[in-house]
Structures are given as structure tokens and as C-alpha cells.
């Protein structure tokens, strides 16, 4: 089984976000593989262990995103591809276009990815890749079985979950709960250094800058007001409880 896993390097979820020159600063940020993509890589490795085959990891990002690919290789993926678009002016359509182009030069039975990234959280790249490659997509999958030309996936849907069957090749995106990603062994880490990792530019996937121009333009970045110190709601228990319900509705807008 030829398996492709799409990964993205993101900031660590605990990273302190600050603005530098009007943009999100990258200074001193721990970079990690997007956790949802880790589920995808893990699932890819499980499929490989069950059905045989090989796992190719594909990412779009700056050269430092190599680390995320290396991590996937250390977990057990067989080869990696990094396409550096050479510009920061990219959006989801850019990334999807590049990924699709890179993947289209590979053989694949199934393409896995995280259903969203924890940084921009836009949850659309994998779906766009499916659309470009004219493949069906099942998002937010929490259970997957795939062999012999079809996949059966349990996915979150509005108000519950659904079991869906889809012919392969298809794009499947991982939701939390799909699996517990493995921690790379030393052997994995050592071997990852020797596994093939192709670094490419736009030209290498036959694209030019105009084909991948971002459609979304960010006008400005800002930080939310610093979290106000916790507010203790005064009053007798019943009174405070009522005030709390109101605060959750009107202030926090959360219920």
C-alpha cells in the first residue's frame, strides 16, 4: 500500500505568541509537527504495518520544517518531501496546490492528513488537495480500516458519528482519538538521518509563483487583550451562581 501523509510544522501549542514588526514573531518558538498530522502519520504507519507498503511524508514550508519530516521519518515513515515555496505570502490554496502537485508525482493508495492545524486551524488544506486530485475526502476520522481498494472510516458528523465507506485512493483526515502517536525510538532517530528526504522548490514541482499566489490577504495581526485576572463573582452561592451563568453568556459568550 502506498501511503502519503501530509504534515505541517506548527508552533508548539504552549508557545508565547508575540508580534514582531506587525507579524507573528518566530523568535524562540518551539516548532513541532502539527499534532493532528501526527495522528495521520501514526495511522499511515499502522496501515503500513498491516498491509505492507511505504509511507511518504510531504510538507510545504520553510527549510526548518525539515524537522517535522525527520520526526515522521524517525517514527517510521520511509521518505520525505519538503517543498519550500520560497515566500511567506501563502495561504491554504497555495499550500494545497503545492501539496497536490507534489503528491501527483507519487503513487498513492491513500492520503492522510490532520483535519486541521493547531496554528491557523483553518481545516481546509486536505480537503482542497482532495478536490485538486479529484479524490473523495472523509474528514475528522476517529477510526480507519483500509485495504484492498476501499476504506471504512468512522468520522465525526453533526450530532454524532458516521461510518463511511470510500473507494481508494481517497483523502482521510485525522481527528483526535484516531490513535496515540508513537514516540520515535533511537533506532528510528538514527535511521531517519539516512532516509531519503527531498527538498524542493516550486520549480521542482512545475509551479511558478503566479500559480500559487495567496488569495487571502492578512490586513493586520493583533493580540487579544491580556487575559484579565480571574474574576471572583461575589455574593451568596445562589446569587453568585446566577451571576456566573449570566457572565458566561454575556461576557465570555461561551454558552
Amino acid at each position: 500500500m502506498k501511503i502519503v501523509a501530509l504534515v505541517k510544522q506548527t508552533f508548539d501549542s504552549e508557545a508565547k505568541i508575540a508580534l514582531e514588526g506587525g507579524k507573528i514573531g518566530r523568535q524562540g518558538i518551539s516548532l513541532i509537527m502539527n499534532p493532528y498530522d501526527e495522528y495521520a502519520v501514526e495511522e499511515a504507519l499502522k496501515l503500513k504495518e498491516k498491509n505492507g507498503g511505504e509511507v511518504t511524508v510531504v510538507t510545504v514550508g520553510p527549510d526548518e520544517a525539515t524537522e517535522a519530516v525527520r520526526q515522521a521519518l524517525a517514527m517510521g515513515a520511509d521518505q520525505g518531501i519538503l517543498v519550500n515555496p520560497g515566500t511567506e505570502d501563502i495561504d491554504e490554496s497555495t499550500v494545497a496546490t503545492i501539496l497536490a502537485k507534489a503528491v501527483s508525482s507519487l503513487e498513492y493508495d491513500i492520503i492522510l492528513g490532520g483535519f486541521r492545524a493547531i496554528d491557523d486551524g483553518s481545516a481546509q488544506v486536505a480537503g482542497r488537495v482532495a478536490e485538486i486530485l479529484n479524490l473523495p475526502v472523509v474528514n475528522m476520522v476517529t477510526k480507519l480500516e483500509a485495504d484492498g481498494g476501499k476504506a471504512v472510516a468512522t468520522a465525526d458528523i453533526e450530532g454524532g458519528s458516521a461510518v463511511m465507506e470510500v473507494p481508494l485512493p481517497a483523502v482521510i483526515t485525522a481527528q483526535k482519538g484516531l490513535n496515540e502517536p508513537r514516540y520515535p525510538s533511537m533506532k528510528g532517530i538514527m535511521q531517519a538521518k539516512k532516509k531519503p528526504l527531498k527538498k524542493m522548490g516550486l520549480g521542482d514541482v512545475s509551479l511558478d509563483a503566479s500559480q500559487v499566489a495567496a488569495k487571502v490577504k492578512v490586513l493586520n495581526y493583533s493580540l487579544p487583550p491580556a487575559r484579565a485576572a480571574g474574576k471572583v463573582i461575589p455574593g451568596e452561592p445562589a446569587e453568585a451562581a446566577a451571576a456566573l451563568a449570566k457572565a458566561l453568556r454575556e461576557e465570555a459568550k461561551i454558552i
Binding site: F11, S13, A15, I17, L19, I24, I118, D119, D120, G121, K215, V216, K217, V218, L219, N220, Y221, S222, L223, P224
Partner: peptide, 13 residues
């Protein structure tokens, strides 16, 4: 919001 609400963008197409 991006970064789990730790930053906010205004954006247009």
C-alpha cells in the same frame, strides 16, 4: 483568531 485564540487577524480576499 489564530493560534488557539492567542492572536487575531483581520483578513480579506
Amino acid at each position: 483568531p489564530i493560534y488557539a485564540g492567542k492572536a487575531i487577524i483581520n483578513a480579506a480576499i
